[in-house]
Design a protein around this nucleic acid. Structure first.
Lengths: 235, 235
DNA sequence: CGCACCCTTGAAATTACTCAAGTTCAGTGG
DNA sequence: CCACTGAACTTGAGTAATTTCAAGGGTGCG
């Protein structure tokens, strides 16, 4: 079990006021005086694939704003099997639960190189106490989490493996339908869709053969939207 | 499609200050002066099984605190199949999403006769703006929703039908392990577990035969905890 | 009584899982 | 430069689980 600290490279102390993606992040609506309340340093960190922001059960000292890259939230069952419950993309916040409880509830594992800002819990709590502009954003993040959880349940855990994979690919390419999408390891695909690695592999292969996706490189595919939409519905 | 208003019986204007289950509900932490900010009436309503608090897409004018009974949150897929994404028990809040967006995202359908308080959106917004005592409770409700969503994904949508049903029963009887549990219609069981009605029926029958549950009446069973725990894990 | 609704059960068809070989490919060391 | 190794992926064949389709109870109610 690797320690996140070992894998994290310090990139500097975040200058939230000048943040390039301010309108995307938790602090989007803050005003100049609000920032005076940030009394602890917010570090900007870089994480490599395979490392983790935190592990389930770790004491929660901070939330993380994802600036770039991709993170999976993994939950383990008593019998050891794991399930990926959410993906975090740029703008998302990881570890919100520490604002209510104390420990992280998932493992947050990097899928694609991540740049993230680590915001100490106390900073969020102090700001939240002081300004409704943060409540609003926090509520929206919670809402996003619930929405994505419900979406995964209805779309990615219902129907045949074919339908599930089609729906996942549609989600992944939703932002840039014309850009190729990186597909995950077969094991991760399985953990997202609630199927085995082998079934994931076979289904991906079948999608390539049938032209639902076009291979553009290793684990890089272009989505055939109409065909995928049809597969997402069909029997 | 039935209208919630038709099915709802007015029970009076809620006296939140004297609420019998105050410590359980959204307004748990409010103080005397906070209540001065409640400028709109909070109705207490009664709903019969089969009726709904709201339907997906309805304009969200209020959240509902469940005082007693049981509610299912249903989400529909494009192809018409439905999935139950959460159950709401006493103390839970239905329709939180209207505090962020505008429309309800699920249908909230009564499974067991419900008494609920309808709190207009404006009341929550005004209070939330005024007192951190409500933020805290709101965050906790959001957190509960996310937790339950994740739990359903990992426990009720992973593994065999046998495992899923065992885990659901364990959840249902967690509060009062010695009291019998009401099991849902086979169709609802299917929609919760992501299996067909027939598989649900067969699995319930098998549980009765194998003594994992003891039938105490129509759709009323007593749980055999050790046996169910074993079934929740086993191959 | 007969209809409607829900539940149950059976048998065939389908889908996904399991287990077991192969394959590919990048990294390593001779 | 090339075999060697490990990890991830692929594929096949048999098996198990679930779905599908169809038919048969049971119960409440007009």
């Amino acid at each position: 079990m690797r320690n996140s600290q070992i894998e994290a490279a310090w990139k500097g102390i975040a200058e939230c006021r000048k943040c390039g993606i301010r309108d995307l992040v938790l602090f989007a609506d803050l005003t100049e005086p609000d920032f005076k309340l940030v009394h602890l340093p917010i570090d900007e960190l870089q994480f490599q694939p395979g490392s983790s922001l935190y592990e389930a059960g770790d004491e929660g000292r901070a939330v993380f704003t994802i600036r770039s890259g991709l993170v999976k939230l993994v939950q383990y069952l008593p019998d050891g099997t794991q399930r990926i419950v959410r993906l975090l993309r740029p703008g998302a916040v990881a570890g919100l639960e520490v604002l209510v409880g104390s420990a992280y509830e998932h493992a947050a594992i990097i899928l694609q190189e991540v740049a993230a800002c680590r915001i100490p819990r106390e900073v969020v709590e102090r700001l939240n106490h002081a300004t409704p502009r943060l409540h609003r954003q926090l509520m929206q993040r919670w809402h996003q989490s619930v929405r994505q959880a419900d979406e995964w349940l209805t779309e990615l855990s219902t129907g045949s493996a074919r339908q599930r994979l089609a729906r996942l690919l549609l989600q992944l390419c939703a932002d840039h339908p014309d850009r190729p999408v990186r597909v995950f390891s077969r094991e991760d695909l399985g953990a997202m869709l609630g199927i085995t690695m082998e079934t994931a592999s076979r289904t991906v292969a079948e999608f390539k053969r049938s032209g639902l996706v076009a291979e553009k490189g290793p684990n890089l595919v272009l989505c055939n939207l109409p065909a995928l939409r049809k597969a997402a519905l069909a029997e």
